[in-house]
C-alpha cells in the first residue's frame, strides 16, 4: 500500500514551480530596491562636498 504522506510527482512539480516563482520574485525585489536606491541617492552622493 502506498504511503499517503508521500507527495505525488505532480504535487512536487507544482511546489517546485511555486518555490522558483517566489525565489525569482524575492530576487527581483532585492534588485529593485538596490537600483531605486542608486537612482534616488546616486545624484546626491555624487554631488556631496568632500
Amino acid at each position: 500500500m502506498s504511503d499517503p504522506n508521500l507527495e505525488s510527482p505532480e504535487a512536487a512539480r507544482a511546489r517546485r514551480g511555486r518555490n522558483i516563482a517566489l525565489a525569482l520574485g524575492l530576487g527581483l525585489f532585492v534588485v529593485l530596491v538596490f537600483v531605486v536606491t542608486l537612482v534616488r541617492l546616486g545624484a546626491n552622493v555624487a554631488q556631496r562636498p568632500f
Binding site: 502506498s2 499517503p4 511555486r18
Partner: peptide
Amino acid sequence: AMSPAVPRAMPARWQDY
C-alpha cells in the same frame, strides 16, 4: 490497522496565483 488514505489537496501552481 492502517487508516484509509486521505487524498491530499493538489498544491496550487504559480500560474494559479
